[in-house]
Write a protein that binds this DNA or RNA. Structure first.
Lengths: 139, 139
DNA sequence: TACTAATTGGTAACATATCTCAAGATAAGT
DNA sequence: ACTTATCTTGAGATATGTTACCAATTAGTA
């Protein structure tokens, strides 16, 4: 009889993880698909979604549900914050100390059992900030 | 000649705003659609999307792009943070002081022009926290 | 090597959000 | 109140992002 639910090491999974580790950006499933397809042209989009989801469930990678409609994925699993460009949607890491204390503040301010938090900064990235197009920026 | 671009006051817009003001949750466009449809059964989903988007552009309401794939809308426009239930997806306000200082920290830590930030706490809401189903909770 | 269950690729289905456009409604002037 | 110009609506079509389905393939084990 076989062991229950051991995640098999497939070429697809390996390459998806490898490609994700290569970049510091936070690609969407589609972007990962494009990256992986250069090495595995026949891979299916479903496979990419399936595995990104799986790997995020097991904690191998991080699924970011930040602003914007698409999910993004991150191979850096240690807690950290993000900044998102309002113009192009790009997401980068922000290395500032984790604000542990605010969890307690929050717990006192609501009826939730607080398990964690995430901070997302918004702004303009290096490229988009150069040409200062007047945009109504709320928050 | 007519004034340029004055947002007209239509029944649909009024009711959408009224319904949004009634709730403290942060409904998705679809949820707003359901709420509004009770009073305006013939309203189209497109109209709801269109107007929520419009109203958020003019600053009348707030468009939250928090975790989860759907956009959510909030009639409270003063800056505040949110908590999201990992179980049911519900989103509530958290009334803790705005952490203004971290914007400067962030600005120093990256090459973005920082314009703002949002903190989203994750946890279990009153209802979901009661029946402690063992869930793998990352972050 | 052969077996068994997990995994894949391709496609269809689904969910969410936006676009199109004729018909209807609003605001301003008469 | 009537007219007109323009904005807005509703309904469906379309686009985008994600998941489900299933026969064929593959990894891990004996």
């Amino acid at each position: 009889m076989q062991e229950h639910n051991p995640m098999r090491i497939t070429t697809q999974r390996q390459i998806i993880l490898e490609e994700l580790l290569k970049v510091t950006s936070h690609p969407t499933a589609n972007e990962v698909y494009d990256m992986v397809r250069k090495r595995l042209p026949r891979i299916g989009l479903g496979t990419v979604y399936r595995n990104l989801e799986l790997m995020s469930e097991t904690g191998m990678i991080l699924k970011l549900e930040v602003g914007g409609t698409q999910k993004r994925f991150d191979a850096t699993v240690t807690p950290h914050y993000h900044v998102r460009c309002m113009e192009c949607g790009r997401v980068d890491d922000i290395k500032i100390p984790i604000q542990d204390d605010i969890n307690e503040l929050a717990a006192e301010a609501c009826h939730y059992q607080i398990l964690g938090h995430h901070i997302e900064f918004t702004g303009l990235c290096g490229d988009c900030g150069k040409s200062p197009q007047q945009k109504t920026s709320i928050n």
